[in-house]
């Protein structure tokens, strides 16, 4: 897989000599590959199969984009703390990586409208703790994921001590190991987890907060690509593609996806 990446990069560089200032869409077509940054540790939105390929809802969406452009696709696994840097550096053409749409992020990358998905923040915690409100987290260690925007909010507003890990596996493990009182994360993922028989003792006890839309992103200044992605997202909502993918990957249809489908139908 690495050799392929290497070969691809070399080919890319060879091809891009001629197209120094070209539009990214031209570059992609010339190169014949769309390079997309997705999560690889975020089941079911982006994760690995045993062969090392990236699969999930977001990779499927990315494939739609590649099909539309008529090019091949290559995935670069990203994490929350490096995804915007990768896009800025030009390492990836397109980022679909569970990123919440935030005004300060719009200063760094181009997020085309409308949003393609949405989720809120909630916690997974032991039922026996009997959490009722966010305020109950004050002074308690709460696991989180490095680079998630709600870490700061959870600790500043509600006084929780955020213990942030690199990946979800570590965070779940730390929660089960009793290192944290709760795990603050996206509600869609928590709902799925709480339904798992392994996690029968755990619940999602709080009101979902910060219900915020997710934005896919292209590099700043790539207006043409951004325009194309906007049309693409509207298309997804119109055809119910997002709802279909949710079902395919075992997620209950979210109100946001349903509402967007109704809006653009």
């Amino acid at each position: 897989m690495k050799i392929k990446t290497l070969a691809a990069t070399l080919v890319v560089s060879a091809l891009s000599i001629s197209a120094a200032t070209a539009d990214i869409l031209d570059t992609i077509k010339e190169r014949g590959t769309l390079i997309v940054g997705t999560k690889a540790d975020y089941k079911p939105y982006g994760f690995l199969d045993t062969s090392g390929a990236v699969i999930g809802i977001e990779p499927d969406l990315a494939k739609d984009v590649a099909d539309k452009l008529g090019v091949d696709i290559e995935f670069v696994p990203v994490v929350s703390s490096n995804r915007m840097q990768f896009l800025e550096q030009g390492k990836i053409d397109l980022m679909i990586a569970t990123m919440t749409d935030k005004p300060d992020r719009r200063e760094v990358v181009l997020i085309p409208d409308p949003n393609y998905y949405s989720s809120g923040t909630n916690v997974l915690a032991l039922k026996s703790l009997g959490l009722k409100e966010w305020e109950d987290l004050r002074g308690k260690p709460v696991c989180g994921i490095q680079g998630a925007f709600y870490n700061k909010a959870t600790s500043q507003t509600y006084g929780a001590e955020i213990v942030a890990f690199k990946g979800t596996a570590e965070a779940y493990s730390a929660l089960k190991g009793g290192n944290c009182a709760a795990f603050v994360y996206d509600d869609s993922a928590i709902v799925a987890k709480a339904a798992d028989p392994d996690w029968a003792d755990y619940e999602m006890p709080l009101q979902t907060i910060d219900d915020a839309p997710w934005g896919l992103a292209v590099a700043l200044g790539e207006e043409k690509f951004g325009q194309m992605m906007s049309e693409m997202i509207i298309e997804w909502h119109k055809t119910g593609r997002i709802l279909e993918l949710e079902t395919k990957w075992g997620v209950t249809n979210t109100p946001f996806a349903q509402a967007m489908h109704d809006k653009y139908k």
Binding site: S80, S81, M84, D104, R105, E107, V108, C143, Q146, G147, A148, F149, N151, K152, I162, V163, A164, F165, K166, E170, A174
Partner: peptide
């Protein structure tokens, strides 16, 4: 940093995640 001990690198990482 990897097991979330709030030492200097960890805190710096938190800060750059929040402030880009």
């Amino acid at each position: 940093y990897a097991i979330a001990v709030p030492e200097m690198l960890y805190e710096a990482n938190q800060i750059w995640s929040d402030n880009v």
